[in-house]
Design a protein around this nucleic acid. Sequence first.
DNA 1: CGGTTTTGACCAGCGC
DNA 2: GCGCTGGTCAAAACCG
Length: 299
Amino acid sequence: MDDDNSIDPLSGDSTWTLPGDYSFFGITDTRDNNILSEFGWNFHPPAPVLDRMDSGGSCGVPEEINPTTSPVPVHSQAGSVENVRDVSISNPLVSTSSSEDRPESSAASGDAASGGQPPSSDTGLLGKVKKKGPKRIRQQRFAFMTKSEIDHLEDGYRWRKYGQKAVKNSPFPRSYYRCTNSKCTVKKRVERSSTDPTTVITTYEGQHCHHTVGIISRFSFRSSRVAWGYCAYNYAQLTIYIKVTDGRLGLHSKLSTKDSSILGITKVRTFDGDALTKKVKVFSLLNCLFILFFQLSDH
DNA sequence: CGGTTTTGACCAGCGC
DNA sequence: GCGCTGGTCAAAACCG
């Protein structure tokens, strides 16, 4: 695969322009459905499922991270890491546990993190006095890097910015966001890498206890075989559709899963019979965010 | 008008 | 203890 072009963010909000005749926000196109049925799939969009969110502890309460749902190194497949990078998401930086942070990059070096929501203490403005609560417990965190021109990547949730700080040794500020759901304590930090300004470092902390506001992320990228697609997910199910558009339309893959860290590898065929192997790996992050890498090869 | 962003101040943790 | 830095608060400004 070549990586000529400006790599692209997974986020649908990127500036990328995509082939105009496809919808990225749901398969409403009858052509899509026809394609799916040709491949033996009857499309039904992932129904909003609420049960999942209750399954593990209350909102904002850190759960043990099951190793199987932790981010997996990107290198595991035969494919090159470069490919992964081309797709725009690079290595998951960290995840985990509450107590202590690995100093992995400037991204997650923060300390007094935000973890358990402080019992919003009464603070007067002048002479602010904040009650000292119990020591904050950091919730699980996950950071990853995305090449993107925009800072705030669409992830299906609504966020309210509550702070911004200059970052030491970086010309780029760090922004702090909180999930707008009043019962949800998930936070995220967004900053640009000081070493690679094209890279956005996003760090999530906590676990959503509700589900997304809608279909989520579109992604697109270019490679030797132009590919693009989108994924939709909710707490219980992830469905990915991928089209390979090297001149023809082909819709090849539907994956569904429940709480799987790696969905697997799918083999697909194009319409004209070309054999095309697509390796798809999907990581479930904190049960709420999915990132996918894929790699196309010519057979 | 209500929700969001901006921004300066405050607080906590850490290293020296 | 002090200074530095990250994280948060909350009033004001902004915006749809």
